[in-house]
Design a protein around this nucleic acid. Structure first.
Lengths: 208, 208
DNA sequence: TGTGTAAGTAAGTGACTACTTGCATTTCCC
DNA sequence: GGGAAATGCAAGTAGTCACTTACTTACACA
């Protein structure tokens, strides 16, 4: 039997709750149901274990994709935003812990920054394609717009736990609201809908 | 002589760099140029000291204000955003560390969440006032819009250090870009000009 | 001169930490 | 059934941590 995966999973869980310094080898061993020594025999050191756990996590993370050629921006961007905000929410603890390690263990953040980096790049490409299609009435920089949507999603995923009253309710609709706000900032016409029923559709979606 | 303030300042600095567990009383004492025992005599315990340091920080934080009655939305919102992003950037380390303590020391986050909570409330009131003035052509929820701008600013302030290539350049213009994108999402006219008649009608029809 | 207060020095306590060593046990594959 | 690899157990090492005790120094003020 090989406890490697159990240890990696336990390490990720303990790290998410207690951070690097709080992730004692004893705690991880207990969480994995394994003798503390097994950790050192398998991974050599606590630092190597945590690094392996982080890498294991980012490798197993599947990201939603945006089409190369936008067809229905509102639908596509909403779905992507919902998938992304859900991803971040499920990992909010570990993301907070990783971010707080920048000063002391910058290498560890390389792994953590991989997912948002790819997501940002995808989103940027999508917005650029939208622009090239001429479906945008406002001038904008794709990078700024992408950073804005990603920031809104990120802030919601990180902060709602701490200050639930600050963010839109219900939380399941938040991603959609951010996506729609962004599209309006860019002046994007709704892909499938007509201009005449645009407002009706929006007010329906925005009211609760 | 009373070393209280020196210790508080040193504690905040050490905490910002090393987090709670990494903030050893020895490190703090060294940073303050003080004997370790003085810390315990002044504050009783490490936890009480860190808590006092956090409180001291949030109390000394001055926030930019938004006018109760919007006059020049683009200028006002840009200036507010710039002031807010600068505030967050100067404190990004300590904010990251505080956020990562939610699981283990939730009381500490009460202090940290005070500033963004007030900022969000101010922004929300401002956007509501804009809406009531009828200078907005799109229907929107102030809370969602506020969360979006705050999130964009927050994400920029937290993430740029880790992934500078993801965010708009130069960083001094970022806040302005986010503010402008938001105003366009709400359909607010540029500068001091008012909305056109047609748009005003539309917004009146759509508002409840 | 005497007293109170803030600070320092030195030494130590008990608990915890990452990590090691030596040896016994289980499990798996051939 | 045997050998090798993985795992467990017990004990220990050297270091760090928050915090304490007991005593001393410096200074302000009356």
């Amino acid at each position: 039997m090989n406890y490697r995966d159990a240890i990696l999973t336990a390490a990720a869980g303990v790290f998410a709750q207690h951070g690097f310094r709080g992730s004692t080898t004893r705690r991880i061993a207990d969480a994995a149901g394994v003798n503390e020594i097994t950790i050192f025999r398998q991974f050599g050191s606590k630092e190597a274990l945590i690094r392996a756990a982080m890498q294991h996590l980012t490798e197993s993370a599947g990201l939603a994709t945006l089409p190369e050629i936008p067809a229905d921006p509102e639908r596509e961007l909403t779905e992507w935003s919902e998938s992304f905000i859900q991803h971040l929410r499920l990992r909010s603890s570990i993301i907070r812990k990783s971010m707080s390690e920048i000063e002391e263990r910058p290498e560890m953040c390389e792994f953590a920054s991989d997912v948002p980096r790819r997501a940002s790049n995808d989103l940027c490409l999508y917005l650029t394609a939208l622009k090239r299609q001429g479906r945008v009435t406002e001038k904008f920089e794709p990078k700024s717009a992408a950073a804005m949507l990603m920031g809104a999603i990120f802030g919601d995923a990180m902060g709602r736990e701490m200050m639930p009253d600050v963010y839109p309710q219900p939380k399941e609709k938040a991603a959609q609201m951010y996506a729609q706000l962004l599209l309006r900032a860019l002046g994007v016409e709704n892909g499938t809908g007509k201009a005449t029923n645009k407002q009706t559709k929006r007010s329906k979606q925005l009211s609760h």
